[in-house]
Design a protein around this nucleic acid. Sequence first.
DNA 1: GCATGATCATGC
DNA 2: GCATGATCATGC
Length: 442
Amino acid sequence: MKSTRDYDSSLASSILAYAERLVGRSLREALDDLPPTIDFSSNKGGFGTVLERHYFGYEPNSRPEPDFAEAGVELKATPLKHSGSRLISKERLVLGMIDYMTVVTEEWESSSFLKKNSHLLLVFYLHEQGKDPRDFVIKIVRLWEFPPEDLEIIRRDWQTIVAKVKAGQAHELSEGDTLYLGACTKSSDSTTRRRQPFSAEAAKPRAFSLKQSYMNTVAQGSLGMKSVAVDEVVRGRPLEEVVASRFEPYIGKTADEIADIVGLKAKRHAKNFYAVLTNRILGVGDKDKIAEFEKADIQVKTMRLLPSGRPKEDLPFRAFDYCDLVQQDWESSDLRGALDKRFFFVIYQLDRDDAPTLVGTRFWTMPISDIEGPARRCFDETQSRIEEDKADYLPKKSENPVCHVRPHGRDSRDVIPTPTGGLACRKSFWLNGSYIKNQLGL
DNA sequence: GCATGATCATGC
DNA sequence: GCATGATCATGC
């Protein structure tokens, strides 16, 4: 394979050794001859640019070959942030623009993606708001080669993205389409569009990127996680298929029967009963996270259907802060970010006595047209009503086919400030149960 | 029966 | 103590 032939491991090791000297230091500390007048503000990737130019001594470029061409190694600087007591990845890692016109002519094995990104030299630095990037401290340096089970999923992701472009649907790409490798939007303003080869519809510019959730596990390892499908995935079976097959033997059984079989003692009315049951079915400890789901940022949800067939509950998202919400742009909003994920539903049918029977599982991604249509309208409407001091009258379920706004606080006294100076009870966006049911074909 | 409002359980 | 995910209760 070309990508491996082009990799020179001894050269890579010496580059790594040189890079490792950065750990625990900032660029200012590492470089005595750092020019005092670097303008970081003009360039979001300022840290990476300085790292390339002043530490590694080459000009930043966007050539198709890896940055260290002789070693076959691509340099990537990527930020971390604090999350409680630990460090997590601050954002996704962009691995090159998707050229819609040429990517459709490529094969995975010889793809420009693989050629450039098979071996990454990752420099993780701690990003701190308001700090001069020269003072960001480098925390982790590592040479990264994708483990075979991950590379297999990434191969499928790449093919999913390319297939969509081939089908003339580049404008319908969504990060939720794929697991580890996403097609993230990439342009300075949200109105930019590019041609695509098999449709007259212009599409947003997008780049191949490793999801933030994936980067987390690269940075901190898979602590507290357990893989559920390494062997099957390496043999080429899609993760979704493996997961579905794990549930297969339990379909038609009640939750209590399943709990018995998997040795779960917890009561059905414990609020985390279904979450633990899902873990058990997948062969994962009660407190473990499912590694593949963590890396792909898959949202596991239980859906219970009433005897009538309609969903028992709508699906809530995190409560929002009114003042923060009115400041958000739709494109980068929390709501949009929550909607373009991949979901995994475990579906139970309730009988007249409220006993749940497992009827199936589904992976699902919300269609872009629903995100940009009804969901966006709900968001815009919510923003404008809050601004008009009508935080108590936000879009109801009956107003929107896809989502609505409802209380989501400790209790009715759980009120928070609104930008107009008032107080309103804590609320969140909810996906309408009826919408999900239709989407899942139930 | 359904939409809307209210509240609970768990883990960090 | 609170965020987060999940579920219950009420009134039309």
